[in-house]
Design a protein around this nucleic acid. Structure first.
Length: 753
DNA sequence: GCGTGACATTTTTTT
DNA sequence: AATGTCACGC
């Protein structure tokens, strides 16, 4: 049995899969079969009888990855995999907290706040506390709270050293108290609570530590401090941790991922038990060479070099555009050409650094009638109409939830305005009760609302989930509201979709109910209630972007969203200084512990740039056969034209693998000649317009906006503004390494680049 | 209580 | 360009 399981693995993969019962770190490069190794090891462990399915804990970051893992394992293992603990950190934490809600100090039907909910809860709190939101921005408060929770720190553990951080800490404390009162938990709270639960409760900890003999972690480089501690707590003396990750693909430091965890893990657990998976099965040679060369310029790496048995393949095509529009039309031409030659649109991806860049591309694609699909953006369960419906449901199951109350008390409008609510809030605060309780004793329109909710509660008590939700949507007036709105058709449809989702969910969990009541859990576990489970599901799995799947369409997404995916052809667009690497990435990367010493500032800047470089590395390694890199000299951003220099990352690639599409008649290679491209040819006839179109008009100096220049002292830069004439003429130049400067042409030593 | 217009704001994102 | 927030007036 297990022989065939291991048959198609290379020696390193096989070694990783069949490691003995010890902790190990698997450094798995892009396209090296990471998920395969992880799932095969799970199957191998179970199949060889080393562990029962219940003794395995497998953790991922996304629901998608968790599902993928389950699918693969089920395909290889004929047994029931239901009782296995495979899921996201948050999903598993939620499962733990629902099972042991009493020990965790939570109400049975505690609700989960998503980031939006959390932010409004913070705003509400700050309003009640009369905090100046100019000085303490709610978003920063949110980052402060989450940053600390992710570092495992409660408010009392935070070291506040000045007025500002002391105030922030007070807010943190008050916010947690508010959440506790209302029976809600934000995302990091799930992790921290679960952590504290096991930390403080020894019998429980013993139970889980005994149970989980093998813990497998995917994308280990993305773990934050709390998640790492969480894993350490779950791992008993007899538990083996199997961590798979790639430090070069760590692109989430900006939201708390701690890159040092990998090195730490190696020291604490793996003890030199490290296996590197360096053979790449995805990309052709030139693409890998580019990726390797680029990433080698990062200073702090664990070290790893990908190689492939495939040939070099095609050169990497570089296109220089004068404007974002020209870049877009270049992409459209190439995409259509490849498509004509037989490549599916869904095998091609358009990548960009930030979502705002998709606009121009979408416009060009739309005009050319190229079907496309944009990933990212608003998720299903985050749409306002869906959130309204969910808030009604939350209020039904957990009346203490003031956030839910406020969301729906006057939506659709019932004539309950700010004034009334202010009085209600005062009353509630005085009596020390929730808004709902205060509403129950109120008169007037508020009483009407209370009656409405009570009625809904009565009717839905014995209804199946989907019917209950249907009733809520009708009785609350949401349906009528959107029916009356001439632009409400989509929203109505989404509400219908919510009912469908609930029906589907009920169906699926019916099958799983038997397993959900965890037979091996210690006493105290209770079966979950359908509505609560559905609401948790809605919060934890915000839902894949609806519709559009199934058709052959070009894939548009940010580089972040592309992680873990692969395509035949990849276009990386907007390779400009300031955009990619993003200008804001160098600063502000540490939030909770912001110090101002110049040394750590420098370090931040450096690590910011390194993360951008890793991002570029991820982008490049998405491509199997063909890779396009493009940049535009001018770009509309936030309604203004910006001029930028080509990204430094372009300079960091080895010239011999690049093919410059703008100068196709000149030798594109400094040495050697490219192998003739195999397979797809693309829009080989493409050539750039003859002359740059500059929006700026005549001056007598020979310089114009958008032009690249070289300064004796400041280096290369691009002219972004111009004023004066003749001897008074001055230009503003944005230098790559020296910021922006106004220079008088009469004096400055400028030369065209 | 509710609609309107001025005003700012704008990386990346999962849970 | 587009979207959300907020103060203001009806």
């Amino acid at each position: 049995m297990s022989a065939s399981l291991l048959e198609n693995l290379n020696p390193e993969q096989r070694a990783a899969v069949t490691l003995p019962h010890e902790s190990a770190l698997i450094l798995a490069g892009a396209g090296s079969g990471k998920t395969r190794v992880l799932t095969t090891r799970m199957v191998w462990l179970i199949q060889t009888g080393q562990v029962s399915p219940l003794g395995v804990l497998a953790v991922t970051f996304t629901n998608k990855a968790a599902k993928e893992m389950m699918t693969r394992v089920s395909a290889m293992l004929p047994i029931n995999t239901r009782g296995m603990w495979v899921g996201t950190f948050h999903g598993l934490a939620n499962r733990l907290l629902r099972t042991h809600y009493r020990e965790a100090g939570l109400p049975q039907s505690f609700q989960i706040l998503d980031s939006q909910d959390q932010l409004s809860a913070i705003k509400r709190l700050m309003k009640a506390m009369n905090v100046d939101t100019e000085k303490y921005e709610p978003k920063k408060v949110q980052r402060f709270i989450n940053g600390n929770k992710e570092a495992g720190l409660r408010a009392r553990d935070v070291e506040a050293f000045d007025d500002y951080s002391m105030r922030m800490t007070e807010l943190y404390e008050a916010y947690d108290a508010q959440c506790q009162r209302e029976g809600v938990a934000d995302f990091p709270e799930l992790l921290l609570r679960a952590y504290e639960l096991l930390y403080r409760n020894e019998p429980l900890r013993q139970h889980y530590q005994d149970r989980f003999r093998h813990i497998l972690i995917d994308e280990f480089q993305d773990t934050n401090t709390l998640q790492y501690r969480w894993l350490k707590l779950f791992a008993g003396p007899r538990t083996a941790l199997f961590a798979v990750g790639d430090d070069d693909q760590s692109i989430y430091a900006f939201r708390g991922a701690n890159t040092a965890n990998m090195a730490e893990f190696e020291r604490e657990f793996a003890h030199g038990n490290v296996i590197k998976l360096e053979q790449n099965y995805r990309s052709h040679g030139n693409i890998l060479t580019a990726a390797n060369t680029l990433i080698s310029q990062n200073a702090h790496r664990l070290g790893k070099n990908l190689w492939t048995a495939e040939g070099e393949g095609e050169p990497i095509r570089v296109f220089h555009a004068y404007s974002d529009q020209e870049e877009a039309s270049f992409v459209v031409d190439e995409v259509r050409a490849l498509n004509r030659e037989g490549m599916n649109l869904s095998d091609m991806a358009l990548l960009y650094r930030s979502n705002a860049q998709s606009r121009v591309l979408e416009h060009a694609l739309f005009s050319a009638s190229v079907p496309y699909r944009v990933y990212g953006g608003l998720r299903f369960f985050e749409r306002q109409e869906v959130k309204h419906a969910l808030a009604y449901l939350r209020l039904l199951t957990n009346p203490e939830d003031d956030g839910a109350f406020l969301r729906v008390v006057n939506f659709p409008t019932r004539g309950i305005g700010a004034r009334t609510l202010g009085q209600l809030a005062d009353g509630a605060a005085r009596a020390g009760t929730s808004l709902w309780q205060a509403a129950c004793t109120a008169g007037g329109k508020v009483a009407g609302f209370a009656k409405l909710i009570e009625d809904i509660k009565q009717v839905t008590a014995d209804l199946p989930l989907a019917e209950a939700i249907d009733h809520v949507i009708e009785a609350s007036g949401l349906a009528d509201y959107y029916r009356a709105d001439k632009e409400g058709a989509d929203r109505l449809e989404n509400l219908n979709e919510l009912i469908n989702a609930a029906a589907l969910f009920a169906e699926e969990s019916e099958a799983a109910t038997y397993d959900a009541v965890d037979a091996s859990a210690p006493a105290g576990a209770e079966s979950f209630r359908a509505l609560d489970t559905f609401l948790a599901h809605a919060a934890l799995e915000a839902g894949e972007h609806q519709a559009g799947a199934g058709h052959d369409a070009l894939q548009l997404m940010t580089v972040h969203a592309a992680k873990g995916l692969e395509f035949h052809a990849v276009f990386i667009t907007g390779l400009e200084e300031g955009l990619f690497p993003h200008e804001q990435s160098a600063y502000d990367s540490t939030r909770a512990s912001a110090r101002s010493g110049s040394e750590s500032f420098r370090a931040n800047e450096e690590s910011g740039l390194e993360e951008e470089r890793r991002l570029m590395y991820v982008a490049i390694t998405r491509a199997r056969r063909r890779l396009y890199l493009s940049h535009a000299q001018s770009r509309m951003l936030h309604g203004q034209t910006r001029y930028s220099l080509p990204s430094r990352f372009l300079d960091e690639l080895p010239e011999q693998v690049l093919l410059n599409l703008n100068r196709r008649n000149e030798p594109a290679y400094s040495s050697g000649s490219p192998k003739p491209a195999e397979g797809y040819k693309g829009a080989s006839g493409y050539s750039a317009p003859a002359a740059p179109r500059s929006p700026q008009t005549g001056n007598d100096t020979g310089y114009k906006v958008g032009q690249s220049v070289v300064h004796a002292k400041f280096g290369t830069g691009i002219i972004i503004d111009f004023e004066g004439r003749g001897a008074d003429a001055r230009v503003q130049v944005k230098f790559r390494n020296a910021g922006s400067k106004w220079l008088a042409l009469a004096y400055a030593k400028l030369a065209p680049a």
